[in-house]
Nucleic acid binder design. Sequence first.
DNA 1: TAGTGGTCTAGACCACACA
DNA 2: GTGTGGTCTAGACCACTAC
Lengths: 261, 261
Amino acid sequence: MPASNPANASPDSPDGEGAQLSGGPAFSPLYQQIKSLLLRSLQGGEWKPGEAIPSEMDLAARFRVSQGTVRKAIDELATDNLLVRRQGKGTFVATHAEENIQYRFLRLAPDEGPATGMARDVLDCRRLRAPADVARALNLKSGDSAVLIRRTLSRNGTPVVLDEIWLPAGPFKGLTAERLSDYAGPMYGLFETEFGVRMIRAEEKIRAVAADNVTAGLLKVAEGCPLLSVERLSHTYGDKPIELRRGLYNTASHFYRNDLN
Amino acid sequence: MPASNPANASPDSPDGEGAQLSGGPAFSPLYQQIKSLLLRSLQGGEWKPGEAIPSEMDLAARFRVSQGTVRKAIDELATDNLLVRRQGKGTFVATHAEENIQYRFLRLAPDEGPATGMARDVLDCRRLRAPADVARALNLKSGDSAVLIRRTLSRNGTPVVLDEIWLPAGPFKGLTAERLSDYAGPMYGLFETEFGVRMIRAEEKIRAVAADNVTAGLLKVAEGCPLLSVERLSHTYGDKPIELRRGLYNTASHFYRNDLN
DNA sequence: TAGTGGTCTAGACCACACA
DNA sequence: GTGTGGTCTAGACCACTAC
């Protein structure tokens, strides 16, 4: 690439993998364009979760930019938790399947003791028409089929979390209570490995609610007991909403932690 | 700076503002050292909140490094929300005092309508001995004096938040209910402007609790009503804990929002 | 026009992992 | 030793703001 960066004005190498936008009026830095191209490759499955992507030098050659430009693109993807850099080894596609230790999105911590794993219990897993609110959240047509999973998480034999998980039926064909129970790692690992659905980002809405009759029984608390209601909408590539999860947390001996800065 | 970066081994310009660590065995990149120096200047008040810091070129000259190295240091401080970059104008010390629109750390949003400001009501502000748990959280000696503020936040005339705020008495000499009530902006702006205490970072522990008698009266809910309990520990420079805030949120028509990635 | 941050390059060397 | 990411430099030019 010559010294005068053509950026969005005069593309001088409009070949296969050239990086410049051709003539668009909107300005976008080269590294952002590289980032988009990398994102597209990730979404398209060119590199699978856990695998290494090409080295910075290789990518620089492929996109015909300098290493520094590729570097900045990768940096942003790394802070977005889409890629993981490992010095001396390479850059890898992030994955929920081998995330050491703990659930990536679960912010629940015990008052005392280490944040060890929790026992999972799938209550049921069935297909039904998505209710209106679920359909709206997941961008489904009303009447579309959805999967509903209900499960609990327990620590030391005591149930702490009751989850109600809604998924679009399409991408999750073949998901059963058995497969959920059999899979060793976190649920998002299974989604990734078995269904090619990778969770990128989520928004949570948190409230305090009173336990209803059924919930009280499942969580072994009194009816009316205050519970944390955590509604999570998870998104996959392209910011597409793909999971709606409604959790009820018993915060008698656990708390939801959050860091602000 | 010569091509062979001396880093931690052979300082070649040990003058006033030279950047290298002298002889320490622990490796630390130059830009991290610059970051520390900038942090020290911020902490020491060389540049006040809202002011501009010197340009990248000036800082590069001062620390005898390249612009790119200063740049990376500033980048990190900017993502930490300690500095704010404004293209064409300069780099500024972040401040709570002019943060347009909304509270920086308050994650409460209304179910409907825009997240407009809320009405503040200071119930009381007094000095007393810090209880054991507060003293522990704020690193005070047991028996040290502390300020306790109680206040509510209301939207459309309805109280939504009841805060109980603990501060060490020392740095907040002269803080009264009147000054709290009179100050126009957010409380952290007042802390910054009047007491030189800038909040950098906070951790929150969230639970669901039942409203007790007194709380129920203040928030105009029934006794036993589920409320969100938000315990926030805020830190200032040097990661020093400086505020313990216990909030009770009525989440009937508001929710606590959180983004996960 | 001058000064600021923002982008991009090309090349050097360092730290780390692995064979 | 080779290859990877990580750091640092020097210099060019672009985009934005203010005077």
